[in-house]
Design a protein around this nucleic acid. Structure first.
Length: 266
DNA sequence: TAGATTGTTACCGT
DNA sequence: CACGGTAACAATCT
């Protein structure tokens, strides 16, 4: 569910917590803690701190916490189905999602603020993770604002080694924020095949890709999320290219389905 | 019901 | 060594 467009909305909604003081941390499901992050540490160090910044880098939501002589960052990764809920309002309701299920048993983590209010992580599938001081250096430049220079660096390959373009675009260490649905959509809009070897991408194509990455993300955010692309309704057996009616091709990358038009994507 | 699912990561192979 | 494919994770939805 959450790719960059969703997490950007989560960031906006979570910004309501700016300036609030954490009173209590509730780890309702220990699985939601990343390795190295413990409930004990959170209980000992978070209460009394103030939310001084709410940031997003790729699909990572980062809450900067300060106070009590401490300075730390709480990172949230949303996995496949994670959603931020602030003061009972699901961030996801800002989006046009099909089924926005709400169920108290899916709340895995919660920050309770002094005074009133809370910030919760709802995550049915439990792939989401909370981590103290996430290593943001492992993430590439943010896809929403990527430059031509950054895109060129992201696609760089040693001569002779040519991984598929889609694999590179999904690599969070190269570009942060793109997921399966968004990549298929922007490759479709760019007229580039997911199977194109990165070392065979021309500079003109690279520039088109950079432009479409930013434009597609903005479009999807405006429409209401990663699943609102033109290709989305055709991601099914019998699906056709919305541009030229060609039956879509399909293959799998690491268990991830990829749909594209073999007529206009090369 | 069988099959598919938006993400991340350890491991294996080239 | 770099990098991609694969499976695993866990649960829900169609």
């Amino acid at each position: 569910m959450p790719e960059l467009p969703e997490v950007e909305v989560y960031r906006q909604v979570a910004s309501a917590a700016l300036g609030r003081v954490i009173r209590q941390v509730e780890v309702l499901d220990p699985l939601c803690l990343a390795p190295g992050t413990t409930a004990e540490f959170l209980a000992d160090n978070l209460p009394g701190t103030t939310v001084s910044a709410v940031r997003r880098r790729g699909k990572l939501l980062a809450l900067d916490l300060r106070g009590r002589g401490r300075e730390l960052t709480l990172g949230v990764r949303f996995g496949m189905t994670g959603v931020v809920i602030v003061d009972g309002l699901a961030a996801i309701e800002q989006l046009v999602y099909a089924p926005v299920q709400r169920n108290p048993k899916w709340i895995r983590f919660r920050l309770v603020f002094a005074g009133r209010g809370e910030l919760s992580l709802q995550d049915p599938r439990r792939f989401g993770r909370v981590v103290v001081d996430p290593d943001e250096a492992l993430l590439g430049p943010d896809a929403l604002t990527i430059t031509v220079r950054q895109m060129r660096a992201a696609l760089a390959a040693r001569p002779g080694s040519g991984p598929p373009l889609k694999a590179r675009l999904l690599d969070q260490g190269r570009i942060a924020g793109l997921g399966n649905l968004v990549v298929d959509e922007l490759l479709w809009r760019s007229g580039l095949s997911p199977l194109r070897r990165v070392d065979a991408v021309t500079d003109e194509e690279l520039r088109r890709l950079q432009r479409e990455t930013r434009a597609t993300l903005r479009l999807l955010m405006r429409r209401g999320g990663s699943h609102t692309g033109d290709l989305m309704p055709e991601r099914r057996p019998g699906g056709k290219c919305p541009r030229d009616g060609t039956p879509l091709s399909r293959y799998r990358v690491g268990g991830r389905s990829t749909w594209w038009c073999s007529l206009h994507q090369h």
